[in-house]
Design a protein around this nucleic acid. Structure first.
Lengths: 224, 224, 224, 224
DNA sequence: GATGAATGAGCCTTCATTCAT
DNA sequence: CATGAATGAAGGCTCATTCAT
């Protein structure tokens, strides 16, 4: 006769067994649906029903692949982050000319940030940041903060080479990031501007960002 | 028709006369409750029940003063905006010294933006911006955009006076606004930083913003 | 400006406000419906949907009057207990003749226990006793245990009067209670017997219970 | 009827032919898992998922061996009954001394009934008795009723031998069974008493049961 | 025969909104 | 005007059962 199990043990067993979510195609399919619905509606207004329908999957299947709505959302955010951060920082490493390196980096950054997904992700994450602070923090740390940190490391190198005169490279990096987005990011975020900026607009704004940045931190500049 | 009115008509007339939500005290009371609850929970997670309770008002009364949840929220946002933009731009008009004027303006701006209400308002508005684009746009236009525009007007004056050399004052204004918030706003927004920055931090960052800005646009600067 | 509320505080407020469930008629109506459905199906298989339908009330209304399914069930159990324990023990106090007093008590007890409601209540409470031990214990303590305790007190009096010779009146009381139900309760409980026993059957079994009890504990008996 | 069979019948036959669940080891394995889960949770709260996990078997396999949840449960109950009634009544046949025979029987009975499995089985069967009356009746008839019947047969023998004076041996048997459980069974059933009674407690209560029983039915007793 | 991913009905509960008092 | 009980649609999630492999 088997031993009597405590409820907790029984649950543990069934939990361990739940390997599930094995089929990567279906997982992908679900994430596509989730992307569409979360993007269109935001976290709260997106219903698991809608997501199941959008993914062409039964509601139950959603829960085979993801523990609950929040986990599904987090998985989506993570997938998108992976998708998009590729090649972001190569520009910095490869380009020897300082101005051009900054220009390339800034353009890539702004292109990414003003794109439709980053837009949605920002809005959704910010929308739930009060209730899900960990999600907000993690998103920030693995996204914007990471970008600034990588740029700061690059600036450190150029300072070491004598090409730049910066005391607080962390702040300088953040300044450049913010300058690059000036007038472009905010109206997008608030949905005051429905379309991503054109390449020309981006080039202009980032160019001005580089100019301002170099005016302050370039070795021949007065502010050094 | 004769002068005799059916009871129902009398009632109908008095219904039409209902100036709905006439009592300003009660309206204020409701907005207070709404503020507390929206701030604590976000738009979707805030229930009309909670708001009624927080406002010490019956649920029905909510609907006398505001058409529905969304209108209540919009009214709240508008009220708060009025509340807080007062005196934001006086700094610019009053202070003759350019650096100091920018400093004062930047500090006031950052203090406001990193404060608890602006935080919530941003998060909530952004969270619903996809579903309620008008709200997002309006918030942007009457808030951040207005600030930048006022600053741009100020810059125009100083350019005219020969104190600054700026071609695109609209962009320059936006740059200054963004520089002032560097490293301060974003972590707050994502809830990665739970406390508003100290006055010292603000002063440091805004100081650096002024330095960078003036390096680019100051009349004696190389970038002019 | 109202102070920012922590989520917990907001919830507390709304909880406190929920006076609700004021209308006793509607409450009664709901309990009737709940009675019907719980009785017919048991706790788990009874759905709130069914209960709402049986009570002719909307699903939402259920939750105005009762916090959740479990609370509704507990309230039902309590109401029924009140309903039925009235006058159970008066028989003991009033009847001077010992045999007759026991007879009356036993008959009342068995009539109650084999009736349709006690039946359902037993089954349901026992069915969930593993998962809701508090409910089980409370039901036991306020029901069966209380009956035995009252009887034990009565026996103590009669022992003091010299009418009975009992060392362990608690056990003796329990014995009498169990003897009275012999062959009647168990088949009912298991649904092997669909109808309550007739008055004649009850009288017979309780009569035998009294005879057996008195053979053991009566003052003139051998077992004294 | 003619020799022609309707398709449906053919299917039925082939279904019957399916020796479904042929492997006795796997069947046993499943029942072990079912035992653990049903015991821990009750009928409704036990999920087939948990049972499959506890049995280390796939969910599909469950349905190869058992038609559905209910059939699995019934099979479990039946198996456990077989397991435990063995040797229950040997005490009666072997022991020549009447008091001792009753004592042994009563002790064995109570030990069994207050043990963990009988507890769960009772609770679960009672919990579903309304919805599954056949299960309840069968459980009763093959369990408690059978015990009482065996005891009654024994009493008949002793009455024939002149050792007891009983008119209604069926009732007397039931009385003894109930007396033996007094104060022990009920609190266990309601989960008011989490541990099975000690051997001493059992011996005491059964001893008192024998004493009361013999006071009534012993040949030298007044009640004869 | 065994598997376990997939299904979809159904469960409990919440909530914006209405309306009789 | 104010109230708050009542509504019922909708939400997130579970689970017995099926079926392609």
């Amino acid at each position: 006769m088997s031993a009597t199990l405590e409820p907790r043990q029984v649950k543990a067993i069934s939990r361990n067994r739940r390997v599930a979510g094995a089929d990567p195609d279906k997982r992908h399919q679900i994430l596509e649906g989730a992307h569409a619905v979360f993007t269109a509606r935001g976290f709260d207004a997106a219903s698991m029903n809608d997501i199941a329908a959008a993914a062409n999957v039964s509601k139950g299947t959603l829960y085979v692949y993801f523990e609950d709505k929040e986990h599904l959302f987090v998985a989506l955010i993570e997938r998108e982050r992976e998708k998009q951060k590729q090649g972001m920082y190569e520009a910095l490493a490869e380009e020897p000319d300082l101005d051009q390196a900054l220009m390339n980096f800034g353009i890539g950054l702004v292109r990414l940030l003003t794109g439709p997904f980053a837009m949605s992700a920002h809005r959704i994450v910010l929308g739930v940041a009060e209730r899900m602070p960990d999600l907000g923090r993690e998103f920030y740390e693995r996204g914007p903060m990471l970008g600034a940190r990588n740029l700061a490391a690059f600036l450190d190198q150029r300072v070491a080479k004598g090409e730049l005169a910066i005391q607080d490279t962390a702040l300088a990096a953040a300044q450049f990031v913010d300058l690059s987005q000036s007038t472009l990011m905010r109206p997008r975020l608030f949905n005051a501007e429905r379309m991503p900026p054109s390449e020309d607009e981006i080039a202009y704004v980032v160019g001005e960002a580089v100019a301002t940045f170099m005016a302050r931190y370039g070795v021949t500049a007065k502010g050094a």
